[in-house]
Design a protein around this nucleic acid. Sequence first.
RNA 1: GGAGGGGUGGCCGAGCGGUCAAUGGCACCAGACUGUAAAUCUGGCGGGUUCGCCCUACGAAGGUUCAAAUCCUUCCCCCUCCA
Length: 439
Amino acid sequence: MATTKSDLIHTLTSRGYLHQCTDLAGLDEKAASVIVTGYIGFDATADSLHIGHLVQIMMLRRLQQAGHRPIALMGGGTTKIGDPSGRDETRALLDNAAIDSNIAKIQETFDRFLTFGGTGKTDAILANNAEWLDKLEYIPFLRDIGRHFTVNKMLTMDSVKLRLDREQPLTFLEFNYMILQGYDFVELYRRHGCTLQLGGSDQWGNIVQGVDLGRRIAGAELFGFTTPLIMTSSGQKMGKSVSGAVWLGAHRLAPYDYYQFWRNTEDGDVGRFMKLFTDLPLDEIARYEALQGAEINEGKKKLAFEATALLHGREAAEAAAETARKTFEEGAAGDALPTVTAAATTSVMGKLNASIGGSPLITPRITVFLNLLDPLIQLGFAASKGEVRRHIASGAVRIENEKVTDENYQFIRENAMEGELKISMGKKRHGIIKWKAIK
RNA sequence: GGAGGGGUGGCCGAGCGGUCAAUGGCACCAGACUGUAAAUCUGGCGGGUUCGCCCUACGAAGGUUCAAAUCCUUCCCCCUCCA
């Protein structure tokens, strides 16, 4: 649309969140005049959300920033059933306690992006569909809700059609997902006056079903809005850091690693990601987008800092940025690097002394690893000793920036007595070994 | 219920008695080049190792054989067609 009436739609469209909307002009109109309550559903299968959820979380944030009310809906009910899509085996179903504890953890992430509170008109709400799904009775549900869905239409939904076309099995359980999700929307409309459902592009079919259902059984005018699937400019799905999956929970991924994930953004993605994942104003983003060649790294630092500050706070972001600067620009070691602490007993010292030809170089009770293999594994840089050996052979492992060529490298007094050593594997992964004496 | 096809490493997919820890592709990791980017090229990619080997693995359990992912038996699961 050429012009927008509401801040909400203006922001969402200008920052790149719009993929499809059931009635953009109508939603714009509404958002310009009243407080809109909108929701997004999240699974509760893990105790942390990940980078793939971030666009959705940011949309809830935009909603609130524009003076509306966001609802984060946890799928406490649907998680109990277990989403069978893309699974070969039935996975162990989570019990209530596990789901509740996951939800509690996940809420910590929402707290970073949204303002809860419960009293203000735009305070965010954390809802849980277990509240109503658990109580459903099959026959009444079929009569009240099921009759509004035709199998004919359900069969045309992409999620269903793709599976059928690929001759993949689709269980009746999965087939019911869109109905449950549609019902969630209606329930949120009834409870909280929620009239907008946001989601990823893969949710479009389910969202539209909810909009239809709301009109039929509640006479409500509901809106659906989806985001594009966020890919990197080289066509990859985003979501990998050197430490693995990009979790949002600090207990799963350290702020430093989160910062590094953003720091390694591809050139072509900096501006787009700034719009989506930071609060930086568009004109400032435009200045970063104009940078050429290696200068774009300034943009990446800004992006990494802002994104990390949103999730983990400015202090953690500053620490991460400083550690990254020390590590990559000075070749030193920053405080936020992952650390292993090792302890050695006198018997280990004896073994060590023997292994280096009996020279008693080590004072008792200094703490040592006998080799380099274990600390690298403990830091999560490698999964097995064999992998570390291969990496040493290929020259990827360094201690204090000195390449290690001997896979049987032994720590001895000269290189251990500092108490702290920087060890690196590859160019991206750096960590610290600390020695600690024990009795 | 009947007939056929199939279950192989993170995924796809070869192999169909020994030379198979298992071709190839994707993904992933590392090296080179760079800008902590992309692309490209090179190497690696079950675990342990005293580097001799030793474990574990081709849906599950038994069996045949000097030797099985490969043959036989039973079981489990998936797909297609027919009823």
